[in-house]
Design a protein around this nucleic acid. Structure first.
Length: 406
RNA sequence: GGAGAGGUCGCAUAGUGGACUAGUGCGUUCGUCUUGAAAACGAAUGUGGCGCAAGCCACCGUGGGUUCGAAUCCCACCCUCUCCGCCA
């Protein structure tokens, strides 16, 4: 949620920047409602004040009179409030100034390429072919038990997953991140507070009155709802492991092969709560940690500054890391690092207070490992001519083996 | 799942229809005293909304209701704790 005062004073800017992200909130209507709402608040406050005075001198006649006119005004105000909050919540977070303009990923700006694209003296297989050949992935039986876009991960690939988790936790706890395994179910109030349209429109995985999280961030961020951080509490950093659930509505026919795009996968995620002035610094820090981890696996990757149209509703800026996938001859997204500035903290009421300042904290999140896609990247980039797969050096101390043999 | 107890200002507690403008203790901050500190004493100390301001209003788990007037009475819900049951 944006600050209504900011919207009031920057109507043009809010409209322009929303449009850059592909949203068109009705700012004109919002400001109209805001105006009448404020006027009505004054009227209601005055009546309440009168009521208090009348009750003080036991003036029952006057009290009865005030009571009936107050009831009408209060009902009116309640309606206006509803309208106001509906409208103000339709305004997305604004993209920062150095976000590339453009409606889709064609406008993404590549800011770095690192590592050498893998070259093979043979025709490389894709992850599914490798996975089936070595009995590491079974999507056929998963479709039997669960439906399309699910998979069983098996044998050495399971150990490789656990190794990735350990690598991330070892590195990040050494950096001072607090390790956490969060709940994967959140309640309605929290889902609304996060400001993700997929929850608001019911497109997320909805249970009775709860939702399955799309990422660990969704329960780690609201951990601190209604709390105020002291100066020494910030930055507060978490590294969480959880399963992530995705509806993938609207992606019919896209990435249907194997486990590249599935409804359920495991992920290690970073979340930071920081002083607003440290936003950029923290964003770069999270990105550098992602690069460090991908670098340790020896995978070729690039970093992109995502275009405005690609940013989620609460996001002000996002860097993605894309790893080279040989079978697709493309870089594909495996990591993203976003700042949501104070957009979520405002709605979830997460503040900081230092000696001379107080306000809403800035909240950032970044992928440590989206495990499914990282496994795909490892399998494809480390495949050998005979169909076996080598294990990246950095993982070998966790796996206890250096090769997944044929 | 069953039974009971409870949710009040940062923490602990008082408050069962009007003097609550929510008291008290602890904590915190400032001041006095002191070479300095402690102690003692004094004062200040929640969040949010509206307003240029003076100020007004809201908030005692949440939402409704009763009343001229609600922290207090009524209804529903949420959460916590204790005991029992079940269970990885």
């Amino acid at each position: 949620m944006l600050d209504i005062k900011f919207i009031r004073e920057n109507q043009k800017l809010v409209e322009e920047k929303s449009a850059q992200k592909g949203y068109s909130p009705n700012i004109k209507k919002l400001l109209e409602v805001d105006g009448s709402r404020r006027k009505l608040i004054e009227e209601v406050d005055k009546l309440r004040s009168d009521r208090k005075a009348a009750a003080g001198i036991r003036d029952e006649e006057k009290g009865t009179k005030i009571k009936s006119s107050l009831k009408i005004k209060e009902d009116e105000l309640e309606k206006l409030n509803e309208e106001f909050y509906t409208l103000v919540r339709e305004v997305p977070n604004l993209p920062k100034d150095d976000v590339p303009l453009g409606p889709d990923d064609k406008s993404d700006k590549v800011i770095k390429e690192a590592g050498k694209k893998s070259k093979f003296a043979f025709a490389p297989k894709d992850h599914l072919e490798l996975g089936v050949g070595l009995d590491l992935i079974d999507v056929d039986r998963a479709s039997k038990t669960s439906g399309a876009r699910f998979g069983f991960i098996k044998n050495e690939l399971v150990i490789l997953e656990l190794a990735l988790v350990r690598l991330a936790f070892d590195l990040l706890t050494a950096e001072g991140f607090i390790a956490v395994i969060p709940p994967v179910i959140i309640n309605k109030k929290i889902a609304e507070g996060l400001g993700y349209p997929e929850y608001e429109t019911g497109e997320g995985y909805k249970l009775d009155d709860q939702f399955l999280v799309g990422t660990a961030e969704h329960s780690i961020v609201p951990m601190h709802m209604d709390e105020t951080f002291g100066e020494s509490d910030l930055p507060k950093r978490y590294v969480g492991f959880s399963t992530a659930f995705r509806r993938e509505a609207g992606s019919y026919g896209k990435d249907t092969r194997g486990i590249f795009r599935v409804h359920q996968f495991d992920k290690v995620e970073m979340v930071s709560f920081v002083d607003p002035k440290d936003d950029d610094k923290e964003h770069q820090f999270l990105l550098s940690l992602e690069e460090k981890m991908v670098g340790q696996l020896g995978l070729p990757y690039r970093v992109v500054n995502k275009a405005a149209g690609e940013l989620g509703f609460p996001t002000a800026q996002k860097y993605d890391i894309e790893i080279w996938i040989p079978s697709q001859k493309m870089y594909r997204e495996t990591h993203s690092a976003s700042t949501n500035t104070d957009f979520q903290s405002r709605r979830l009421n997460i503040k900081y207070q230092s000696k001379n300042q107080k306000g809403y904290v800035y909240i950032l999140n970044a992928t440590a490992f989206a495990i499914g896609r990282t496994l795909i990247a490892i399998m494809e980039n480390y495949q050998q001519k005979d169909g076996s797969i080598l294990v990246p050096k950095a993982l070998q101390k966790y796996t206890g083996f250096s090769k997944i043999p044929r």
